[in-house]
Structures are given as C-alpha cells and as structure tokens.
C-alpha cells in the first residue's frame, strides 16, 4: 500500500518526495481500507444470504436430533425421547392424513409416519377440553398431521417431526403453526413423496 502511494506521489511534482516524506499517508490508507472493508461486508452478506437457514431456526426451544436409524423391523424398538423423533420403525406407517386418534399409538408405526414427512401432535391426557378441540380442528384441517394422546410426555402438547420436536404449554402457542409450516412434508423428510394413507388405520 505504501509502495503504491510512493509510486503515485513520485510522479507528482507538486508534492514532496514520498521517499523523504515522514508523514503517514492517512488519506490513501483510508481510501483502500474502506474499499477493503466494504468488500468484506459485501462478501459476508452474500455468503449469509446464499446459505439456507436451517429449518425451524426461528422456533424457540426446538430440539433436534440426527443420526436416526431408518431400518424396518416388526419388533419393539427402544427409542430416546417421549415421543420419539425418529429411528428404526415398523413396516406399516400409521395413517397420518389429518387424522385424530383418541388412543395412544404404537411408537414404531408413528415413527414411520414421521419418515413420510408427517407432523405428529401429541398431548398429555387430561388436557383442557377447549385446547384439545382446538388441536383436533387444526389436525383435521391439515394434511400430513396426526394427533394422539401420549401419557408419558413432559409437556402438555408436543409437536414432533423426523429429527425435530418442540413442547408447548398451550394450543394457542404460535410455535404450533410455525412448526407445521416448517415441517409438514418439510426439508427434514427422509422419504419425500411417501403416502400418509393406505396403511395402519387404528391405534
């Protein structure tokens, strides 16, 4: 930089010789410096824009899990978490076409529905009747969702997709809609295009 400044200044008769000049060329430094800073800002901005935000990044307290098994088994699977967020599962998926179940489901079937891109909404039995009917209305109106009680879960209401989960206290929590918009047939779906009907119809 200072070499460039010297070179330029040496051509100018009006100015003192840069070689003998003691002053720091602040103007030149500021000029090139600001171009450099601008470039760095622009490149960083472009990089951030070009990187897709991970799904559900805006959902507070979202829990995520990866490296989930995807094998079929008709046996019992030991899952982490209640309800499970994925893993090996039964060959039969639980029908998840906007379906309301009144009884708890078998994990192994429900996990297969998660693999198909469904969102499983579960609630702790004893949920307030108005809240439960709000959930039922929502699920009945939204394809690729299903609802069932889940006695051993921690939160009153839990939303689960393959590898993602959020617990909420109330059916009016705005994270419910955000979760559905993000994860119903969302980018986490291990098997895009798979059906939510035609398999297990009863709990």
């Amino acid at each position: 930089m200072s070499k460039g400044a010297r070179n330029r200044n040496s051509n100018s008769k009006a100015r003192p010789n840069a070689l003998t000049e003691r002053q720091t060329p602040w103007g030149v430094i500021a000029f090139y410096g600001s171009i450099g800073v601008l470039a760095i800002v622009a490149i960083t901005y472009a990089f951030i824009l070009s990187r897709p935000e991970p799904a559900g990044a805006s959902i507070k307290d979202l829990v995520q899990k990866d490296d989930l098994g995807r094998d079929h088994t008709s046996g019992t699977v030991k899952y982490d978490g209640a309800p499970p967020m994925g893993g090996d599962h039964d060959p039969m998926w639980q029908n998840c076409d906007a379906r309301v179940y009144e009884q708890p489901l078998r994990n192994e079937n429900a996990v297969h529905s998660l693999e198909h891109g469904a969102v499983w909404i579960t609630y702790r039995p004893g949920l307030d009747a108005a809240q439960l009917s709000a959930l039922k209305a929502k699920v009945s109106a939204t394809g690729y969702t299903f609802l069932s009680p889940y006695p051993s879960q921690k939160d009153p209401i839990t939303l689960t997709a393959w590898g993602s989960q959020v617990g909420v206290q109330s059916a009016s929590d705005t994270r419910i809609d955000a979760f559905l918009r993000t994860f119903v047939k969302g980018p986490q779906t291990p098997e895009p295009g798979a059906a939510c009907d035609g398999a297990k119809d009863a709990p």
């Binding site: 039922k136 209305a137 009945s140 559905l180 119903v184």
Partner: peptide, 26 residues
C-alpha cells in the same frame, strides 16, 4: 410451506366460514 394451518381453500376465498370435516378451520 406444504401445510397451511390456517385451513384449506383460503386462496379460493372460502376461508371465512368453517364447516369442514372434524371442525376444519378452512
């Protein structure tokens, strides 16, 4: 999004009245 929790058919101007199966909001 692949789902509209606001209910189906809103794009056709049917959103206001409910009455879907199981109390759908669309």
């Amino acid at each position: 999004p692949k789902a509209d929790p606001g209910g189906s058919m809103r794009w056709m101007g049917h959103g206001a009245h409910g009455g879907g199966a199981g109390g759908a909001s669309g």
